[in-house]
């Protein structure tokens, strides 16, 4: 319940935060992934750089072609944002499924994806939304396509000394027609499996599809077999049933006392179907 000692440094701007970065430093955003780990002494940084007071990171911007969600935007802010509700409904749906009121009030999207818990909700949603991650470092900014961001078990494309400043989500027809469904681990309420789906339907035909799963494997991933089977076909229940086969093929499926590999794989296909059915 008591973290190891560390030095605390507050940054008032992204630039300041980057300038404070040292080898043993970690970034403190909402802290709802980091502080629980500190309390159990599973994570013992020498320095914490607090970026939670940087207002610029908290904004959600409604731009012409995209919505940009600041890395410091809380889950609650995302859940209540009108632009996201209109352009990417699965964002709000996922936000409301995260943790609880208190966690949503403080936890941030940037913190969550930097942590990259394999059972977190955002990775699936951001993969399905074709988002990109805006990252600041001492050389300036870079933008990483979401498909290149999640690299594995708690592993991302984020390099040492970098901070997620925003997530950019394109305003696409598919994102307007999207949803997120989740089967919760009953104790932690993280996802045993969570599926995000975004479909561009034109005259009943699937023009584009992005379907992603979290919780099932060591990292969230897109279910390309399903996407492929959907695209070009007319969207109905039969298509869903024929398109969703083994959605965990080639993946190393996680296993724990709540869900064995076999059951998790079964749930994954059930939840891909359920997500798609919600979009019928």
């Amino acid at each position: 319940m008591i973290p190891n000692s560390f030095e605390y440094k507050r940054a008032n701007s992204v630039e300041e935060a980057i300038s404070l970065m040292t080898e043993d430093a970690q970034v403190l955003g909402g802290g709802h992934s980091l502080i629980p780990a500190l309390k159990l002494r599973l994570n013992n940084p020498g320095t914490l750089i607090d970026i939670s007071k940087i207002d610029a990171l908290k904004t959600i911007g409604d731009n012409e072609k995209s919505v940009t969600v600041g890395g410091g935007a809380t889950h609650a802010a995302i859940a209540n944002d009108a632009a996201l509700a209109k352009h990417v409904p699965m964002m709000g749906q996922a936000a409301r499924e995260i943790g609880d009121i208190q966690v949503r009030n403080v936890g941030t999207i940037g913190g969550s994806i930097a942590h990259a818990d394999p059972a977190a909700d955002w990775p699936a949603v951001l993969l399905a939304s074709n988002a990109s991650v805006v990252i600041s470092n001492k050389d300036g900014k870079r933008e990483v396509d979401i498909d290149q961001f999640f690299l594995g078990f708690y592993d991302t494309a984020l390099e040492e000394g970098e901070i997620i400043t925003a997530i950019r989500i394109p305003k696409t027809a598919a994102n307007q027609h999207s949803c997120y469904v989740k089967f919760k681990q009953p104790a932690s309420r993280f996802a045993i499996v969570g599926c995000a789906a975004a479909l561009d339907l034109e005259g009943g035909t699937v023009k584009d599809a992005r379907v992603a799963l979290t919780g099932a494997a060591d990292s969230a991933y897109r279910v390309k077999s399903v996407e492929k089977a959907l695209i070009g076909n007319s969207f109905n229940l039969d298509l869903i049933h024929s398109a969703v086969g083994d959605v965990t093929e080639g993946k190393s499926i996680m296993s724990d006392h709540y869900a064995s590999e076999k059951y998790r794989a079964h749930l994954a296909s059930v939840y891909v179907k359920r997500a798609l059915k919600k979009l019928l």
């Binding site: 605390y8 709802h32 502080i35 629980p36 309390k39 007071k53 208190q102 009030n105």
Partner: peptide
């Protein structure tokens, strides 16, 4: 000690938060 039970819930700047998952300096 896992930010689960909510017994420590307070309001910070008008919002319910788990005070076991916020540093005092914050």
């Amino acid at each position: 000690d896992t930010s689960s039970c909510g017994a420590c819930t307070i309001h910070m700047d008008g919002k319910a938060v788990k005070s076991c998952t916020v540093l005092a300096v914050q």
